[in-house]
Design a binder for these strands. Sequence first.
DNA 1: TTCTTTGCTTACTTACTAGTAAGTAAAATA
DNA 2: TATTTTACTTACTAGTAAGTAAGCAAAGAA
Lengths: 198, 198
Amino acid sequence: MTQQATPPVTPADTRARILDLAENLLLERGFNAFSYQHIARELGMKPAAIHYHYPSKDDLGTAIVARQLRRLRKWRDLPRVAELRPNQQLEALFAVYDTHLGHDRRVCLFGALAADFRTLPAPMQAELRTFNRELTEWLAQVLAVGRATGTLRFVGSPAAKAAQVLTTLAGALQVARVHDETPFQVIVGQLRLELFAQ
Amino acid sequence: MTQQATPPVTPADTRARILDLAENLLLERGFNAFSYQHIARELGMKPAAIHYHYPSKDDLGTAIVARQLRRLRKWRDLPRVAELRPNQQLEALFAVYDTHLGHDRRVCLFGALAADFRTLPAPMQAELRTFNRELTEWLAQVLAVGRATGTLRFVGSPAAKAAQVLTTLAGALQVARVHDETPFQVIVGQLRLELFAQ
DNA sequence: TTCTTTGCTTACTTACTAGTAAGTAAAATA
DNA sequence: TATTTTACTTACTAGTAAGTAAGCAAAGAA
């Protein structure tokens, strides 16, 4: 076997890889069901090495949510997304949730943390609240414009509809985990049927 | 202080009280965030006493879900529920979820277990699948009759709508936990607005 | 070239986890 | 009344959790 030309793992890489692995474990098993040992083993390191980068599990958990919040803001403001018409923006949102299915039926961040919410460190709770609030506000705006321009259809206030749709999407990924992909597709199909005009 | 005339705690009581406490802890903190010690402390007993009644945590967890399944079947078949008209049956379902809010914003069984699903013992997973399936089938029937008799209104298949509504309700309790009661009321209000004809 | 910082490992502590085995007092049964 | 069963406690095992402190090799900076 000749030596593999794998690029060297820089310190910054390690920090990011820890965060990636932790996020994966969080979305697959929940915050209280993964440990520094799980991460360390997959990285071929010792648990203490993880503590070097993220001193406490609180820090690590908070970093995961903070990164997702940064990603949300970035995604939302991407020209590719921001310049779409409302019905296409909604379809783009569905696509994000659909992606989770492909990744071993991972639930979304909110769905992963809501049940264990009271056992989470306070900064993590705060970040998750902000995450959910900003996402809901964004969707409410999308829905409002969509209805005004005739590409989307619903009754009630955009804010209420946005809260309902996001809640349904988070729940749909959970149902997919418990059963299989089918109920997720059925539920999102129902959302499409109701929301898209014509 | 004169002696209190508290009724004696019978063995059967203890078993039920353990199950009650465990269910409470499960719905408040998640399956992986409570231990036999938590239960024992609140009962004024030693953890080993809990093992006497429920040898393993798997047994205890499975017993919780099995009891909820029995309760669902009992509730569903209650004359007080079974003899209602579909729109009233739906309102009765909403009332059950509303009750959770009053109990310290407990999430529902499904919402409590879905995220950690992969870390659950197999028998617990099986019971939860049955629970969710039976509840969905019941609601699908309610919706089908409701639409046929003109008291409920929706597009698409009753099965798809039932899956969507239940998913939304489970998610709404999770949102209530992360924020406060308001989003739950908003979401259920939206469901009422859409489902109840006129 | 020396000094400092970085990114770890080794070795450890404290606390908690599920679970077991043996003993015991009281109640139920024969 | 003697025996067994019930419902525990005490005392333990073995494993895992988060977290810390000290040491160390390599890289970077002075």
